[in-house]
Design a protein around this nucleic acid. Structure first.
Lengths: 154, 154
DNA sequence: GATAATTACCCACAACTACCCACTATCTTA
DNA sequence: TAAGATAGTGGGTAGTTGTGGGTAATTATC
């Protein structure tokens, strides 16, 4: 089963319950926690969404951060911004994770959530923001989109 | 549980009580005191904040200091500046630490404090100074920030 | 050396979180 | 098609976490 280790694809619709729990698609669960006993990391995404990141990938990033010299002010600010919204997490017996309230607010998620596989990480969206966000990106830079499509073909 | 030993991430809001005690986030406690029975060190941060440093990391720094020749005046000054504001500490049964008044004054902390995990150490901030500080750094050096973001990607 | 001030240790309680169990719907397999 | 397994959702409970305050022990002051 090495084929799809840490490779997430597809879109899923789930609900958030009163305790802030979301289901992780069954297909994602194994890859999320490979070799790390069910541990992974959540943080803010570049867009207005939540990132769920496999431990191996997050740890690499952490290691790079720990190699930055604390003497530089901008390094310190960068480290802060990388870690402040992040936390490690595990899922419960039913395969759900509890999302911090701060992240749910950031992503504007209340009851419904769309989960998208982004190859090496997972995104959790407010379903409305998702389509809106991508439409905006397309409007701003449709040429770049076509370039990518031209290079990365099926 | 080797996964996140001595790896501090996340942001937490706590209050300082009348006795100068702050809670240490439960998730940090174990990593803070690995192999040293609850002992760690507090000192001034580079920014206007308080550092809380695991014993293992502090001891490494002490060792390097002890290798500096005392014949050099600048070495002596450097050693002094590293140690004069530092002290060792432990937490009480509820997981709190008592911060020296001098450090609280240095960081301008009164009732509210923001605690940030900085991978291998912890920072304690006056919530107002924190955002102000990082905004200043960004204004001064946003190019360097973008460079870092380009290299260290999620 | 007696008293005041500070610190360390202990207990108490409310809020929250993690863990457990239960139910339904869907998918798989015989 | 029936039966079992898996997946998604909801809720209860015990343990943990954050916060306040009291008392004894230690340190400082006169």
């Amino acid at each position: 089963m090495t084929l799809s280790a840490n490779r997430f694809i597809g879109e899923y619709a789930y609900s958030i319950d009163a305790k802030g729990r979301v289901n992780i698609p069954a297909r994602f669960r194994q890859a999320l926690s490979v070799e790390n006993e069910g541990t992974f990391f959540t943080t803010r995404g570049f867009d207005r969404c939540i990132y769920v990141i496999p431990a191996i990938i997050w740890m690499d990033m952490e290691t790079e951060l720990s190699n930055l010299s604390s003497v530089s002010g901008i390094n310190r600010t960068f480290i802060r911004n990388q870690t402040r919204h992040a936390s490690s997490s595990t899922y419960d017996k039913q395969g759900r994770i509890t999302l911090p309230l701060s992240l749910l607010e950031y992503a504007g998620i209340e009851k419904e959530a769309t989960i998208i596989g982004m190859i090496n990480k997972i995104e959790i969206w407010n379903p409305d923001y998702l389509t809106e966000n991508d439409q905006n990106n397309l409007n701003l830079d449709s040429n770049a989109y076509d370039d990518l499509a031209g290079k990365i073909i099926l």
